[in-house]
Write a protein that binds this DNA or RNA. Structure first.
Lengths: 191, 191
DNA sequence: AAGATGACCAAATGAACGATTTAGTCATTT
DNA sequence: AAATGACTAAATCGTTCATTTGGTCATCTT
């Protein structure tokens, strides 16, 4: 069983999912694009959904790596939170696969895709929770419920970036940072 | 043109929309339930959508009245915000028409219904914006962007009430109030 | 013997078509 | 003048059959 062949399948599927979406991607097409027999795919993956899930796992790993690349644990939490959220949400908005997923979930409600998006959201909030916990240990912020705070940060950030923009002029990075300063980090400052 | 007849139509339609949703409600059915000929409906309303919009207008009025009934302008903003948001979102969750609308928008994406829900959201944030503006004038809170602050309050509140609940134990009223105190009102306190 | 292939097939999906329903109109009735 | 419900173009729905799809496995290849 060749690892090279497996990677060819993953690459072909990734491209197909990104171009056509999950639902409209056929295993026949993936096989042809990967230059393998269709049955070969099932040597490596149980089914279509598992193939997709492996690709999403890789995506999550990549996103996490990307976030880590802009984060500096020597910097204050507020700055890192903003950098991470900005980076992760920009990633989501600029990669064809995630763009397709958001659209497909909205227009077709494909279950596998909705689950994948939930995993993306889960990664982001888990990442934030981790940074919040570190900041609590260092005494940089007051003790709080890390998971709730991470959840809240994520929801607020996406509300600013996506929902606000539906009806208003888009907010600048600095404006969002300022709002986070005033409301979130002021509320988190040690007493 | 009898006003009584108009009210009968509105009442029948209200019940039908609440029971069957917008899309599955037929004008024939509304006419029969209202004891009028189908053509009579069009004496009062241009079309099905306008009938629906009038019903939504009434709903918005009722929601606003409901909010006013629990608000006391002598109380501090933080308390009134919580009372209003709680009341309005509970209203939404406990009235069959709004329950149907939320479901239909989600499952079918009916345009008229999605617009109506956007109007409900608009009412809530406009209401909050008004209270925030009053509080600024009174010097109870620091000057801020009222519309943005109202938007943020609404998004946060729904995130706590709806999104958090998808994966966690529901939050108690007091917990939400406490979170609002720390993250919203602390940031709004006059310097 | 191990790995790869693609023909095969049950199930799912999509296209076509005709039956039925629906929103809106308006000639007729009250 | 107001109300009615038959009418109709358009939309929707149900049925049927053709086509496609995901997964399987007998066969082929190495």
């Amino acid at each position: 069983m060749s690892n090279e062949r497996k990677q060819q399948i993953i690459k072909a599927a990734n491209q197909s999912f990104a171009t056509f979406g999950y639902k409209a991607t056929t295993m026949d097409h993936v096989a042809k694009a990967a230059n393998v027999g269709k049955g070969t795919i099932y040597n490596f993956f149980k089914n279509k959904e598992q193939l997709f899930q492996e690709i999403i796992s890789n995506l999550l790993l990549e996103m996490k790596t990307q976030a880590e690349s802009v984060i500096d644990d020597q910097k204050p939490l507020k700055e890192n939170v903003h950098l991470a959220l900005y980076e992760l949400l920009q990633y989501r908005r600029s990669h064809q696969l995630t763009i397709q997923m958001v659209q497909e979930a909205k227009e077709m409600g494909t279950a596998a895709v909705q689950e994948a998006l939930a995993n993306v959201e889960g990664l982001i909030t888990a990442y934030l929770r981790e940074k919040i916990e570190q900041a609590i240990e260092r005494g940089d912020i007051r003790p709080c419920h890390p998971e709730m705070t991470a959840f809240m940060m994520f929801k607020l950030y996406t509300a600013f970036i996506i929902d606000w923009e539906e009806r208003h002029q888009p907010l600048e990075k600095e404006e969002i940072m300022h709002l986070f300063d005033e409301y979130v980090f002021k509320g988190l400052s040690p007493s």
